[in-house]
């Protein structure tokens, strides 16, 4: 029995020594398994390159231009890293995102797209992937990311806030794309295209329940941020220059009421007014051509 234990002990140590030796001889970090070219890449970019080949290349392509092997079958199309135009940012429209923005997208994925959450990867993996993704576009050499927009504290949800949000929804003609009921079926919806001339559908607030998410997040803060930054590369503009923070919050509260199947504080307030549809409850059913 002692001989067996000795063998096991010896074998275990041999395995550990072998493992440490192998680990020391390879690229550090959680490995993609791919050998990576040294070139002009730094260590993080090298690791990111391997990870990119393992996880991303099928959609985003070898050159990062969104023309991967599977791109023709994906809707919406994969992001073009060469153009360096990103939907989900904390920075103003037209500017580059922060690394933390890209990492956040890797963690959460992008709702209603082929982009999954890469939560099982390590933080180091995600950092390395972002480092590599940034090598595709010269913009990252010549520009700096924008300053993140500030999100003021959210005011209380009130009947007045929601009503005012509904008025803004009409005034700013959000309904033209999103439809009066927020179903993504406004009169302009069929004509919309993204920056790659691909047809694109406005967000449908009305579908989904408590687990519904927006393209770039799922909280009220995320929705506020989407207003203010816009979704670059899509027809969704930034309203940072045309709307005041309090107005933006009112709009957020109103949009939440369009998520009719979601249990939210906003919908409770609506219920308190008699349980009517938000537009009917707050008298915003007045615009023509709502496409319903």
């Amino acid at each position: 029995m002692r001989t067996i234990r000795t063998k096991i002990r010896f074998g275990s140590w041999a395995m550990v020594i072998l493992a440490v030796g192998i680990a020391a001889a390879q690229n550090g970090g959680v490995s993609s398994g791919y050998p990576t070219p040294k070139g002009s890449f730094n260590a993080s970019q090298q690791r990111g390159h391997g990870l990119y080949l393992r996880y991303c290349v099928g959609c985003h392509g070898v050159y990062g231009d969104g023309n991967g092997e599977h791109a023709p079958y994906i809707d919406p199309k994969p992001r073009d890293f060469v153009a360096a135009t990103f939907k989900c940012r904390s920075t103003p429209t037209g500017t580059l995102p922060l690394d933390s923005d890209l990492i956040h997208v890797l963690k959460t994925g992008v709702q209603a797209s082929g982009m999954p959450s890469w939560l099982p990867l390590s933080d180091e993996n995600r950092t390395d992937l972002v480092a590599y993704i940034k090598t595709f576009s010269p913009r990252w050499q010549s520009e700096k990311p924008g300053d993140p927009i500030k999100i003021p504290a959210e005011p209380a949800v009130t009947k007045e806030s929601i009503t005012h949000g509904g008025e803004l929804f009409q005034k700013m003609e959000c309904w033209k794309c999103h439809g009066q009921q927020g179903r993504g079926d406004g009169p302009s919806a069929p004509t919309l295209t993204d920056s790659k001339e691909q047809p694109i559908r406005p967000y449908n607030f009305a579908e989904g329940g408590n687990d519904s998410r927006f393209k770039c997040g799922d909280t009220n803060q995320d929705l506020y941020r989407i207003f203010m930054t816009g979704l670059d590369g899509t027809p969704m503009p930034s309203f940072a220059d045309v709307i005041q923070p309090n107005d933006a919050w009112d709009l957020v509260h109103y949009l939440r009421t369009l998520q009719v199947h979601r249990k939210s504080h906003e919908n409770q307030v609506v219920k308190g007014t008699g349980g009517k549809s938000p537009s009917a409850a707050f008298g915003t059913e007045k615009s023509p051509g709502n496409g319903n």
Binding site: R54, Y55, G58, H70, G114, P116
Partner: peptide, 25 residues
């Protein structure tokens, strides 16, 4: 001669991910 490669049949066809996304090998 080892070079990078891609995908696996049913799920790769559905999601467009390389097979290496889900498999070490």
């Amino acid at each position: 001669s080892s070079q990078p490669g891609h995908a696996i049949p049913p799920f790769a066809r559905k999601y467009g991910l390389p097979c290496s996304a889900c498999h070490e090998a």
